[in-house]
Nucleic acid binder design. Structure first.
Length: 841
DNA sequence: GCAAGGTC
């Protein structure tokens, strides 16, 4: 048997398809797809299926000095058990093995990991094939000319793994132990995350140090007086500043005197008119960075954009979204791809208009790599209802980007008018789109025009309003997420597949908050500490050095041992310095952690109120004077609290925002929330559905009084609910929205004998209805949302499943696949089993 | 429980 191993399932499927001329069939072994035809089997890994770690005796952070990690052994263990076992099974039966992982350094290492696993079971020939894209021609050619694994290149990758692990783990543990931050809130450091964090912290330092300067700008409305209709346009004052044009006036007297001179002038005389046409070239094909940036301007975070693109890739609508390439491969036929959109409601007309062009020649970017093509649509179109709103927006963006790359350039006409008035100069720049070009199919990039009328030299213009605007110079702007990713790409740190994860990690670690990201005090302290004692790990030089070393290993000019030992030696020296300052570093970190959680003054003792965490993991507000002062306030139970700059006027206490993904909300001042709850009275709705029934003796209280009542309650944590008045004896409760005034109407729900509620929030009142019915509907919706989290279930499928009585993942787990397939159109038993295995994992 | 890199 011939066994072919690829880097991922998708590649395995496509290679099997090509080599078998479409006859390959898929089997599932331990949840892993194995493609089979004749005597060949193809299996896809999932990237790295083994991982590096220290031996077990190093796992407890308290028992091991971080410096000991430098010389600790490193073991390799399976991280994807099912794949590793399937690979072993197949190897045992193989007569020939071919490694067909991606054609890049990491791919060579993944190939070597597979090689090691195969070698445990098999001692025959192991070959390596390399191809830069999965096309019929390239794949066949590669399999006709197999090569051997490049162990030097793989060793280069191994050196990276080891160096990253040792530096990252040793320094992370050192800082965490110094600040006594173990458990979930450890303080992490790494070759990629730390230089990225420094970038953000440095920018924040610039912003903090920025000293704004006042300046003035002048604007005058000009109106044509000659010829037909009057046309008014805005012009701006400028002056000659040492040979170059300047608009900002730095001196108030000069500005006011220019202002009055312009106001007093009778008219402005056109001094010059210049016209030029500019070609606006269509954009380059999408690589990951450009894609994230474009999705960012549609309001998607880097993380979200990638996650949606990955789903669209898995579903077969887009090509692989992790790529550096900006040049379409030769085998992409743009006309054929355009053709596949003809007839589509959304894209048909645009595709036809592009096909009608004389020549279809896609644009090319500077970066040409061979691993994957730029992101483009596959030509397989989603049916209506297959995509949710976000998926559709991202899909449309990629389709239109592809359209734009084959479209014509746009042409703009620029018109520049200079006029003189009162001894001063005014200018106006007009912009008009003459040829729409690619903007017709790609509405994302700006095509806004600016009107300036066609005037001629010597023409007299009337002066209307003259505005003197006082302004301030602005500090540099914070990096947005997509700008950060671009910056990382320029610095050559991280990879196309990991950069967005790194940013997400910085958020998770408590280093960043808000969007655009702002560093916390903790982040500043970590960068401070690293700059002082381990400068290498916050500099982009570490990666540059590593790249050089890896190239040397790959070319046989250095060995894995030499490079990793030199790096270990460098880290030993870092630790020599660190040791003496451990206490000082720890105090600085702890102080900064406190600064990020400080809310204001304690009303009981005057000490500091802090956001704290209970042993159970929930957040609350407590006094720094604990245990002498026992003042506390509750916080909402959902999300992670973030202390905002904004303060409450009454208590001078910082507002708190609860970060919970899409459910993020501003809680406001915790003291106000508690006070509001203390002042508010419970509003009775009716009998408690749990214990309020008449005559339920066992539920009566000691005095023999009747059951409980359901009431709207405002809690001190800021949440609101409909709960039983006998709480805590009866714990029945229904959630209610946090915001808006709740109105109790006269309408009654027959089923639950409770009044219907209306929430007044914003313009549109929300008819919430009976709180029990509302909660039941909410739970049903939640269950369907959970279903949609499974791969391959979109809104349309979820609806079909709900019709068949399956409206939660639990229902799906218990059902017989064949039975469900029979009752649900378009769903096969095989797909149901797939979902069930996804749920099981 | 530490990193960064693959991948889902």
């Amino acid at each position: 048997m011939r066994l072919i191993i690829t880097e991922k399932d998708n590649a395995a499927r496509r290679i099997a398809d090509i080599l078998s001329d479409g006859s390959a069939e898929a089997d599932r072994q331990k949840g892993v797809n194995v493609y089979r035809w004749g005597k060949t089997r193809v299996v896809g890994l999932s990237g790295h299926v083994v991982g590096l770690d220290f031996p077990e005796e190093y796992t407890n952070w308290r028992d091991v000095e971080p410096v000991e990690l430098i010389d600790a052994d490193i073991v390799t263990d399976p991280t994807q058990e099912n794949i590793v076992r399937t690979l072993s099974d197949l190897s045992g039966r193989a007569g020939e093995v071919v490694i067909a992982t991606d054609y890049d350094r990491e791919g060579e290492l993944i190939g070597k990991e597979a090689y090691e696993l195969v070698r445990e079971e098999f001692d025959g020939p192991i070959e390596r094939v390399r191809f830069s894209s999965i096309t019929d021609r390239e794949v066949r050619e590669a399999f006709d000319n197999p090569d051997e694994l490049d162990f030097d290149l793989a060793a280069a990758g191994e050196a990276r793994q080891v160096i990253d692990l040792i530096w990252g783990a040793a320094l992370t543990r050192f800082l965490s132990l110094s600040a006594r931050q173990l458990g979930n809130d450890f303080i992490s450091v790494g070759r990629v995350q730390s230089p990225t964090l420094k970038l953000i912290v440095d920018r924040e330092r610039e912003i903090e140090a920025f000293d704004p300067e006042t300046y003035w700008e002048l604007f005058a409305d000009l109106t044509t007086a000659e010829g037909g209709a009057d046309e008014t346009f805005e012009s701006q004052y400028f002056y000659d500043d040492d040979g170059s044009e300047a608009e900002r006036v730095w001196d108030e007297d000069t500005a006011t005197s220019a202002h009055s001179a312009l106001e007093d002038a009778d008219a402005a005389t056109v001094a010059s008119v210049s016209r030029r046409t500019r070609t606006d070239s269509p954009p380059e094909p999408f690589n990951t960075t450009a894609f994230i940036s474009a999705a960012g301007s549609l309001g998607y975070s880097a993380q979200r954009a990638m996650s949606v693109a990955e789903d669209l890739y898995t579903a077969g609508y887009l090509t692989y979204p992790r790529t550096d390439n900006t040049v379409y491969p030769d085998d992409l036929d743009p006309e054929a791809l355009l053709d596949s959109f003809v007839g589509s409601d959304e894209f048909g007309e645009d595709a036809e208009s592009l096909l009608a062009l004389d020549e279809i020649e896609p644009t090319r970017g500077d970066k040409e790599t061979t691993d994957h093509p730029p992101i483009h649509p596959t030509g397989e179109l989603p049916a209506w209802g297959d995509l949710d709103e976000d998926e559709w927006n991202i899909y449309e963006l990629v389709v239109r980007r592809f359209f734009a790359t084959v479209a014509e350039p746009a042409t703009w006409e620029h018109l520049r008018v200079v006029a003189k008035a009162g001894g001063h100069q005014l200018k106006a720049n007009g912009k008009r789109l003459v040829e729409e070009g690619y903007h017709a199919v790609y509405p994302y990039s700006s095509a806004s025009e600016n009107f300036v009328p066609d005037v001629s030299e010597g023409e007299q213009l009337a002066i209307g309003d003259v505005e003197l605007a006082e302004k301030e110079t602005q500090p540099p702007r914070r990096y947005g997420q997509s700008r950060l990713i671009k910056k990382m790409e320029e610095m050559d740190i991280g990879t196309k597949a990991t950069r967005h994860h790194i940013i997400e990690k910085l958020y998770d670690r408590g280093y960043l908050e808000n969007d655009p990201p702002r560093p916390t005090k903790l982040a500043e302290a970590v960068v401070d500490a690293a700059e002082a004692f381990a400068d290498h790990v916050v500099s982009e030089e570490m990666t540059a050095q590593l790249e050089e070393d890896m190239t040397a290993i790959a070319e046989g000019e250095a060995t894995y041992e030499e490079v990793t030992e030199a790096s270990r030696e460098m880290l030993r020296r870092v630790f020599d310095e660190l040791r003496d300052s451990q206490e000082e570093i720890g105090e600085h970190l702890q102080e900064s952690l406190k600064a990020d959680r400080r809310l204001g003054q304690c009303p009981d003792c005057g000490d500091e109120l802090l956001v704290r965490r209970s042993r159970q993991g929930s957040y609350f507000v407590g006094c720094d004077g604990f245990p002498d002062c026992r003042f506390t306030l509750p916080l909402p139970s959902t999300g992670e609290p973030l202390v905002l700059d904004e303060r409450c006027e009454e208590h001078d206490t910082h507002h708190v925002k609860m970060l919970a993904g899409r459910d993020t909300f501003v809680h406001g001042c915790p003291r106000c929330a508690a006070a509001e709850a203390d002042e508010s009275e419970d509003r009775i709705l009716g009998a408690c559905p749990e214990c309020g029934a008449d005559g339920a003796e066992e539920q009566q209280n000691e005095d023999g009084e009747g059951g409980g009542k359901l009431a709207i309650k405002q809690l001190r944590s800021g949440s609101r609910l409909a709960g039983c008045t006998r709480y805590p004896d009866c714990e029945y409760s229904l959630p209610l929205p946090r915001r808006g005034d709740i109105e109790i109407t006269d309408e009654h729900c027959d089923e639950h004998d409770l009044p219907e509620l209306v929430v007044q929030d914003g313009d549109e009142p929300w008819e919430l209805g009976c709180p029990v019915c509302n909660y039941q509907e909410y739970q049903a919706r939640q269950a369907i949302d959970d279903l949609e989290d499974l791969n391959g279930i979109g809104p349309a499928t979820a609806e079909k499943l709900a019709d068949a009585g399956v409206d939660s993942p639990e229902d799906l787990t218990d059902i017989d696949p064949d039975d469900l397939a029979q009752r649900t159109q378009g769903v096969t038993a095989e797909t149901v089993r797939e979902w069930q295995s996804q749920l099981a994992s």
